[in-house]
Design a protein around this nucleic acid. Structure first.
Length: 225
DNA sequence: TGCCAGGCCGGGT
DNA sequence: ACCCGGCATGGC
C-alpha cells in the first residue's frame, strides 16, 4: 500500500476510535496564539495554569500584554516553565501585532496563508510548529502542524524516516490529504491523543499497537479498542 | 528519582 | 547546513 493511502487510513481509524477532538482547547483565536507559545516543550496542564493566571490578571489581550512589564508577565507564566524565555517570546509576538497590525489579530490574519506563516515565523521565539499552530487553529488556514508526536508515530509505523525534517513531514501529510482545514485540525489532535496512550518515547516500538492492523490492505478501517 | 512534556534560539563547528 | 547547551515547572 502507498504511504499516502496508509496515512489516510490511519486518519479514519483514529477518528473512529477517538472521535473528533475539537482542538484547539481555547476560547478565542488570541488565546490559541498565546497557548501555542506557552506549550512549547511543555505539558498542556501547565499551560492551562499560566493562562488562568493571565486571565485573572486581566492580561489576555494584545493591549494588556503590550503594557505589562516583563517581570509581572513572567510571574504569571511560571507554571508553564521556561517562564522568562516565554515572557520574552510572547512580548515579541505582541510587538509584531501592535506595531504592524494595530494590535488586531484580524488584520494579521488578512494576509495570504504563506505571507501569514512567514510573518509569524519572523518573530524570534516562534518556530515552525508554533507558527503553524496559530495559522491552522487560530487563522483556520490549511497548514499541517507537525510535532514530536507526529514524527514519532509516523516513524514507528514505517511511514517516515527517523531523520525526516519538519518540512519533509509537513509535505508528506499535506500531499497525502485533502486540502481541508478541519481534516488537518483533527488529524494533528488525534495524533497527539494516540501518541500519549500508545507511543511513549522510551519505547523503541509500539508492541501490539492497536493501529497497526488498519494499515494493511483489505483490513476494515474499524478500530477494535 | 529521573524522565518526559504539543520547541526554539544562539553560538559553535 | 547541522549540532548542542540552555531554558524550567509539574506529573508520574
Amino acid at each position: 500500500m502507498q504511504t499516502g493511502e496508509k496515512i489516510r487510513r490511519f486518519y479514519e481509524a483514529l477518528l473512529a476510535a477517538y472521535g473528533p477532538q475539537g482542538w484547539w482547547p481555547a476560547d478565542t483565536p488570541f488565546e490559541v496564539a498565546v497557548g501555542a507559545v506557552l506549550t512549547q516543550n511543555t505539558a498542556w496542564r501547565n499551560v492551562e495554569r499560566a493562562i488562568a493566571n493571565l486571565r485573572r490578571e486581566g492580561l489576555l489581550s494584545p493591549e494588556a500584554l503590550a503594557r505589562v512589564d516583563a517581570e509581572r508577565l513572567a510571574a504569571c507564566l511560571r507554571p508553564a516553565g521556561y517562564f522568562r524565555i516565554k515572557a520574552g517570546r510572547l512580548k515579541n509576538f505582541i510587538r509584531l501585532l501592535t506595531e504592524r497590525f494595530g494590535g488586531r489579530l484580524e488584520d494579521l490574519f488578512a494576509l495570504s496563508t504563506s505571507e501569514l506563516r512567514e510573518t509569524i515565523l519572523g518573530v524570534s521565539g516562534i518556530g515552525p510548529e508554533t507558527a503553524d499552530s496559530i495559522v491552522l487553529y487560530a487563522a483556520h488556514r490549511p497548514v499541517f502542524v507537525v510535532d514530536t508526536y507526529t514524527a514519532r508515530v509516523l516513524h514507528r509505523h514505517g511511514l517516515a524516516e527517523q531523520d525526516a525534517t519538519y518540512a519533509d513531514l509537513q509535505e508528506l501529510m499535506q500531499s497525502s490529504l485533502p486540502d481541508d482545514v478541519e481534516v488537518f485540525q483533527e488529524y494533528h489532535a488525534l495524533l497527539v491523543a494516540v501518541a500519549k496512550r500508545h507511543c511513549k518515547k522510551r519505547r523503541p516500538v509500539c508492541p501490539g499497537c492497536p493501529l497497526e492492523p488498519f494499515l494493511e490492505e483489505g483490513q476494515p478501517v474499524t478500530p477494535m479498542w
